[in-house]
Write a protein that binds this DNA or RNA. Structure first.
Lengths: 104, 104
DNA sequence: GGGTTCGGTAAGCGTAGACTAACGGTAAGT
DNA sequence: ACTTACCGTTAGTCTACGCTTACCGAACCC
């Protein structure tokens, strides 16, 4: 559920665009909405979901609310994949590299 | 778009369950469906999406199709987050750790 | 060759959620 | 104090998609 919220948040394309926009630097809601083809309330809702997943954090600055990335959610996400690197993935990785044959 | 397919695939809870099941070891469609509260066709559809995102790969074995994790998609996903570690995140991380004040 | 098991596909339905529009609230500017 | 700008919230609509049922093809067993 912890990880579930994160993947659910990043599952939406628009939300990923907001997230990646914030990866370039902190920005307010209006600034983000201006660079995206969606309305401001939509961005606000997306930020709410991202904040719930601890991927971003808000910071009141006068009448504006500046958003920036939150290391908590990202670290949580990294720890999720840690299982695959350290775990089974390393074992089967050699086999996957040996037989590489695709149908696409 | 490349990463989009991956996040879109992992965005669904059921699909994540399939993915995590496969992280424990290779399995056929029927085996996966038996451990999940969904029908077999549903699992098949999810596997199709996961395969399109290069997160899993199929391997015909008689009349059964054994699925296993694919390092390609996972590696692609890891490279995506590499940006955050090497990039802006490291810079603001110290600031985030200094001012840690939550509203929850 | 008939029967059985295993998977992918098509059609259809139902629900979650993404979006816009409208309203209210708070801080800065004059 | 009034105006302006910025943001969050709610209500409501509409599309996307996850699930099931049903059908069909392919590979093993007798």
């Amino acid at each position: 559920m912890t990880h579930g919220a994160i993947f659910d948040a990043l599952g939406d394309p628009t939300r990923r665009a907001v997230f990646e926009r914030l990866a370039l630097g902190a920005a307010s809601v209006g600034e983000i909405a201006r660079t995206l083809p969606v309305s401001r309330p939509a961005v606000s809702q997306h930020l709410k979901v991202l904040a719930a997943a601890r991927l971003v954090r808000s910071q009141a600055e006068g009448t504006r609310r500046v958003y920036e990335l939150d290391a908590v959610g990202i670290e949580s996400l990294r720890s999720y994949f840690e299982r695959f690197w350290a775990g089974r993935l390393g074992a089967f990785k050699s086999a996957a590299e040996s037989g590489r044959k695709e149908h696409r």
